[in-house]
């Protein structure tokens, strides 16, 4: 690892954006372009304040973040925990197995119980779309969606946007292809809304069983042949095939899928020289992406992970600020 870069920014220089109103981060579809830009700007500041997400800054000391995950997760859960801790907040972990959910309690009741312990944010992941929205109606605290089934994963979308912006500066004129299981991917949906709101041209690419024509009706370019669109792409985001969300087999074999859609050295030769290769992870090496490409110079996969901390810090700080303002607390 290289030395952490030095930053000029101090906590005092951080000004809460007057326009920010939201107490929940449920999806990117309902955010405006300027709200998304605010989140990215603050994420960039957070990154600089914390020395590349490595130092602690006591911005949220005394507050508590509850991770309420009803689906397995390692990276997102740890990323939220670390983000909260970097800002001085406490964290508490709840999982579905072994908890009262396994004992038959509804997830709303579980969430209410956790809220009663005095938490400021509930970060939730659940296999059913809309569960964070349901919690935001039932609970008083701030809700952050860490993935609701195939619906959205807003902080993943934001970290992808932040990574692209760090490399390209802006979104106008950029062509970004999302490749893979678009229909079942929450990362795809958050990227689709975020990218299109900020002005990028979005292509969704994969076999028709994973990429519905309805995306075209919604205004996005649909492609089934990766090689056709490859030369036009500035960014490729290679999504994991969601084997667990399939009712029926969407393609004949992994072998065939990899042949048609995996980003390999050969395809890299036909891509733009400055193409960015992204993947939300966990990656299936050899399915969506070959090891040479995943670890190659165009790959920004590990930067994405680091930016995940930055956008999560930004989300925690912005939501808490709006919450305090709404409840009349001035810090």
């Amino acid at each position: 690892m290289s030395e952490p870069p030095t930053f000029e920014t101090s906590p005092e220089s951080l000004v809460f954006p007057a326009s920010w109103q939201r107490r929940h981060l449920l999806d990117l579809e309902s955010l405006s372009a300027s709200e998304i830009r605010t989140l990215l700007d603050v994420a960039q500041q957070m990154k600089e304040l914390t020395g590349g997400c490595r130092r602690k800054v006591q911005l949220l000391a005394g507050k508590t973040c509850a991770n309420l995950f009803f689906e397995n997760s390692t990276r997102t859960r740890n990323s939220f925990s670390l983000a909260a801790k970097r800002l001085g907040a406490d964290t508490v972990e709840f999982g579905s197995s072994g908890s009262s959910v396994a004992k038959g309690e509804t997830f709303v009741d579980t969430a209410k119980t956790i809220q009663a312990m005095g938490v400021d944010w509930v970060v939730t992941r659940h296999s059913t779309p809309g569960t964070p929205h349901l919690l935001s109606r039932e609970l008083e605290c701030c809700i952050i969606n860490a993935g609701d089934g195939p619906h959205e994963h807003p902080t993943q979308g934001l970290l992808d946007l932040l990574t692209i912006r760090q490399h390209r500066g802006q979104f106008d004129g950029l062509t970004v292809a999302l490749v893979g299981d678009i229909n079942h991917s929450r990362t795809a949906r958050s990227n689709i809304w975020g990218l299109s709101k900020l002005g990028a041209h979005v292509i969704v690419c994969g076999p028709p069983t994973l990429v519905s024509d309805r995306w075209e009706e919604l205004g996005f370019e649909v492609a089934h042949n990766l090689d056709d669109i490859l030369p036009r792409c500035d960014v490729l985001n290679l999504l994991r095939v969601q084997f667990e969300r399939q009712n029926t087999q969407p393609f004949p074999s992994v072998h065939e899928y990899a042949n048609l859609y995996a980003m390999d050295v050969d395809r890299m030769r036909r891509a733009k020289d400055d193409i960015l290769i992204m993947a939300p992870g966990p990656i299936n090496r050899g399915v969506e992406i070959t090891p040479e490409v995943a670890d190659g110079k165009h790959s920004v996969i590990l930067e994405q992970v680091n930016n995940g901390l930055a956008v999560r810090m930004a989300a925690l700080w912005l939501l808490a600020g709006a919450d305090e303002r709404e409840r009349g607390i001035t810090s």
């Binding site: 089934g149 619906h151 229909n183 949906r189 009706e217 919604l218």
Partner: peptide, 8 residues
Amino acid sequence: QVSLVLGL
């Protein structure tokens, strides 16, 4: 279209 957007 709506179910596609909502992921349901």
